[in-house]
Design a protein around this nucleic acid. Structure first.
Lengths: 302, 302
DNA sequence: TCTATTGTTTCTGAAAAAGAAACAATTTAT
DNA sequence: ATAAATTGTTTCTTTTTCAGAAACAATAGA
């Protein structure tokens, strides 16, 4: 039984505070979590956990072991990162997380092209993961929309896309066209709460920012449903041009409040702060940096 | 395939300079050595060795990996030592090396008694290994006779035993009894060359040390054959009392040159210099420290 | 009380690990 | 120079191990 794996399991169980939790985190069965830790205990000849049938606590030895364990696991990780850093050709699996909208419209096509250049590379794409724990999930990089606050990561700005407030012509026929941001409070505004600041739409004006708290009958954590709902006439949406561009072009949606400037949506890529960056991450970063600004704004969902 | 094992194999192969050599050192087949390294290479996506069918050299990446590898392996070892250090009860396998003579007469009995006290302990005893590479062989402790020079080890003096020059009455009848050390050059002296200073017998006298270079028809690296040969009348031996005591007592051997003082044979135990000492080593050291001085000198081989 | 969840054990199919033998390539010995 | 030995690797087979499903006892919460 791979000792490093057992150490990982042990550390995770300790962190989660339970075998079941640790097993879930790692995607293995409870049975295996137990076995790994037992193996370790057998090998070391000590209990690492005090188990009282339902609650775990680290033994004194276990606590001491955990410390060093984590250090060793980190070292191994860094060692391997250092090696893959020396590679020039991307290979292995690139695990990338992105919001659904841009993920489908831009990142996936970018990846397709990138994969063609690098035959030894594979991709694991996670759309709309909660992205709270990049490193926990083993994610190499994540696309992030809007403001950045997490400082433990490195963020690089890739592009920005203008936002548009829009609705369907049918909707405007029934409810009228808002002429100032304040009018929005009387409209049904469909919100994509995955892009901060969630249910507030911010307009720029000479007299400072105007924040409008909007609400409507649909909220979603991805852009597509509300784009569709908006076309169906269910309300207004504020979405980036790369999502609604085509719909506006074809007249299915109509932009409003165009005299009021909106803070463009910034598109960042964030990745864990590491001493060594693997070739796959390094090269795809560079690739995106060139590719995305070229494509953003000229496309849109059909 | 256990990654730590693979790392160990890789490090050993690199050290040995060949797969076959590394495999021999580790006691595994050449096939496995290859596989372990290949696995590692596959995982890292780089060659670690440049193999030109018959000669090995580390890749640039391989060299960098080796460094960190060794560090990690050391860390793991220390981590586990730290854990076993916290144990109070000896357990696992105590690997101990000793010269054949004292190994059989004293260390083995001591171990028997010690094992009775500690049910979770097992022993791996190596008699008369060349003991050059204590840590390489994974030996926990070694009994050493005579002067100590290796400083990378910790040595603790356990006891000392007087040496006796003796031969069989039949031998003396035929060749006469040596009256001074110098007479020895005309005698057949059977030498145990595993105890330094090999073929020189050193006597103390008022006018300084007298070193006599002796020679005879039998040399051995263990004491027993020359003890037996001496009893058979084949020559003189210089052996510790705990070996020849009984034979002298029973008249099968006769001590000579008793007016000349011999540097007593010192018995040390040496063990690797480690930050953490396992319970099995710690406790057996203490056990021997008490047990051996009590027994040495009162016994002898039948 | 009943239900859900925990840690562990048992069992079974799948996966792998390890070495023996075979092989080509190459060095060393005779 | 020829033979013998040694090297790294591959193939093949046997044995061992691994991993999860299911079952189980124990416990916490509703």
């Amino acid at each position: 039984m791979d000792k490093l794996t057992s150490m990982t399991v042990f550390a995770r169980v300790a962190k989660a505070g339970s075998f079941a939790g640790g097993a879930r985190d790692l995607g293995i069965s409870r049975a295996m979590a137990t076995k790994h830790v037992m193996q370790l205990e057998g090998y070391l000849g000590t209990r690492l956990f005090n188990r009282t049938t339902r609650s775990l606590s680290l033994t004194e030895v276990g606590a001491s072991y955990l410390d060093r364990c984590q250090q060793v696991l980190e070292d191994v990780e860094e060692m391997e990162a250092a090696v893959t850093h020396l590679q020039t050709e991307p290979r292995g699996i690139l695990k990338i997380s992105a919001p659904q909208g841009i993920g489908v419209t831009h990142i996936a096509p970018a990846l397709s092209e990138f994969l063609k250049l690098h035959p030894d590379l594979a991709v694991d794409m996670i759309l709309q993961g909660n992205m709270s724990d990049l490193v926990d999930e083993g994610i190499d990089m994540a696309i992030h929309l809007g403001a950045i606050d997490d400082t433990s990561m490195i963020a690089r700005k890739l592009a920005s896309s203008p936002l548009a407030v829009c609705g369907s012509p049918a909707y405007f026929e029934r409810h009228g066209i808002p002429l100032t941001p304040k009018d929005l409070v009387n409209h049904s505004c469909l919100v994509n709460w995955s892009i901060p600041p969630r249910d507030q739409w911010v307009f720029k004006s000479a007299s400072g920012d105007i924040r409008i708290k909007v609400s409507g009958r649909i909220m979603a954590n991805v852009a597509d449903p509300i784009r569709v709902a908006s076309i169906e006439g269910l309300g207004l949406v504020m979405l980036p041009r790369y999502i609604v561009g085509k719909a506006i072009e074809k007249g299915r949606l109509q932009a409003v409040l165009e005299d009021y400037e909106l803070q463009p949506l910034e598109i960042h890529v964030i990745y864990p702060h590491r001493k060594y960056l693997s070739a796959k991450v390094r090269k795809f970063l560079d690739f995106l940096q060139v590719w995305l600004p070229q494509r953003i704004g000229i496309d849109g969902v059909e």
